[in-house]
Design a protein around this nucleic acid. Structure first.
Lengths: 326, 326
DNA sequence: ATGAAAGCGCTAACAA
DNA sequence: TTGTTAGCGCTTTCAT
């Protein structure tokens, strides 16, 4: 309801005050679908202003079948990558007159989607890996979903994704260009995920043996511990490619804790290019994901009912700062 | 609308399949307001399951007058403090069956509030300073609002706020305990804001002259530049109290860039206690705001229609890490 | 160019 | 305990 206290002003009140029918009010408010004489329009506009009329969203939604709302599902907004994504998606959504519902789901988002039933939203933008249950939920209630940063080629979702492979490849090439020969991979995924593959390819191409792989979770904490582990188990390593900025921040802290200096003792390049990397010590060389573009496109896609199922891959560029040794 | 393709299943379909009236379906779905025989209830439940019935949110909202949704307004979710706040508010809202709408408004949130008209939300949690226009908007459309981290005693809003004064006082006392005598204040507000006051009080109590004040914006960039400025203009300073973690992160980077070591050359303590401080170099000593508690209470308050207008101040505790010299 | 009226899906007051 | 029914505020078809 529009008002909390007292009766809210409805289209009826406006019609009465303006001396027109309720239909005309509707035509004016929505700029259609029928034309309205300029004089009448003004009367209506005046009445609206005078009464502070605000169309009721629920009533409109009930009849139009749209909610003019989107949901963004991320594991955790406090993660700088997802925070940046949320920031951009929110702007993009507002720009298109859509309200943004934020939902966090650490791993699977079945429950979240279930809660979003009943037409609360017109579509979903998700950065969380879909599992069986999600699929079933989505199948029964065909809510358009576009995935961001997540690629599931075998599933019928549109996927907008950074070029993990290419970006990682470039990052590692850069490290190789600095003369490193023992380059570790620190990742939250398995080494066979795209970032790992890019890393491996660059190494192989340069005739280098694949360095050690440190697999851990995507958190800062994990990055921190990964540093200790790497130093302990592979003291010969001179550089590391870290699969996310979030981990890299922890990794840098772990290195510092262990008394190592970056890039002198160990060079670091990471993935994401989030703004946070500008203020780490030293500033982080990182593969920049075009988050704003990705966000804009995700909103556009989910709003476009006859968009094709497709997988778009966004080129990423290396932002060179200091952690690589430049 | 519940379904995108085809007709959606409505309460009518359920009633038909279960062989009961639509009212009974309603009673079952809402657990009231009338009792339903157990056998009947089962029939209805079965029908619901069979049809995958999902009550239409708009229709319900239209009649109940509630949207079961809250909006959180912050300047910028990518800021670690507001990110953490959003994270906690989202959880708290979901826990109470409320959907969370995220809205960002860099400075004033008049437009955002205007867009949230028509009963899209039942209440507002805002961390943005309200200006004239907001007040006027809120006055005409009495949407419950609770302010978080923002205190406006002269205005009729409930305010939940960290103990900026007390927390800052403790932080600076700690610095004094380390033997510092020239302690700067680096802030995004004026020096007469609560954090500045706490800083000044601690200094005065210890018989120290108030150190230099560096006023800048709340961004990391500003913190970075603030470091250079402080070093240049006040080389005698040996410690700094920074009013937010976000700025402190930039400040640390700026110090590093200038070749200064923390805490050896300059000790730093900041305010917020966001998780990010654990992974800075060195780890940040910071005044921890009980964000989760604040978030929970904010949600509870905004949902409680007969809560009093009140200003709650949350005690903060100093999290001692390394940047202070400990 | 404007108006009357039929619902959208649901809740709840009222009847039975 | 269950059914009937009157709206909630709005959009839009169909008359006028």
């Amino acid at each position: 309801m529009t008002e909390k206290a007292g009766r809210s002003v409805t289209r009826n009140d406006v019609a009465k005050l303006a001396g027109v029918s309720t239909a005309v009010v509707s035509y004016v408010v929505n700029n259609g679908p029928r034309p309205v004489a300029e004089a009448t329009r003004q009367k209506v506009l005046d009445a609206i202003r005078k009464l502070d009329y605000q169309p009721n969203a629920a009533a409109r939604s009930l009849i139009t079948g749209r909610a003019d709302a989107l949901a963004l599902v991320v594991p955790d907004v406090a993660n700088p990558y997802f925070g940046a994504l949320a920031l951009e998606v929110e702007f993009a959504a507002r720009e298109r007159g859509q309200t943004l519902i934020l939902a966090q789901a650490p791993d699977n988002h079945h429950e979240v989607i279930a809660e979003l039933g009943g037409g609360v939203v017109d579509g979903l933008i998700s950065a969380v890996w879909p599992d069986e249950k999600v699929l079933r939920e989505l199948a029964r209630r065909p809510l358009p979903m576009v995935q961001v940063s997540i690629m599931t080629p075998e599933l019928p979702f549109r996927c907008l994704q950074p070029d993990y492979h290419g970006g990682s490849y470039e990052a590692v090439r850069h490290l190789i260009g600095h003369g490193h020969e023992r380059i570790a991979l620190v990742t939250g995924a398995s080494a066979s995920e795209a970032r790992g593959l890019g890393w491996a390819k660059a190494l192989a191409e340069a005739g280098l043996v694949a360095g050690p792989v440190v697999e851990l979770s995507w958190s800062r904490e994990a990055g921190y511990e990964g540093a200790g582990r790497l130093l302990r188990e592979h003291p010969d390593v001179t550089a590391a490619f870290v699969a996310s900025d979030n981990q890299a921040i922890g990794f840098l802290a772990g290195l510092h804790q262990a008394g190592k200096r970056v890039p002198r003792d160990l060079a670091v390049v990471s993935f994401d290019g989030s703004p946070d990397g500008r203020f780490t010590i030293p500033p982080l060389t990182s593969v920049r994901v075009p988050i704003r573009q990705l966000a804009r496109d995700a909103v556009a896609q989910v709003l476009d009912p006859n968009a094709e199922k497709l997988g778009v891959v966004y080129p990423c560029t290396l932002v060179v700062r200091e952690s690589c040794g430049c």
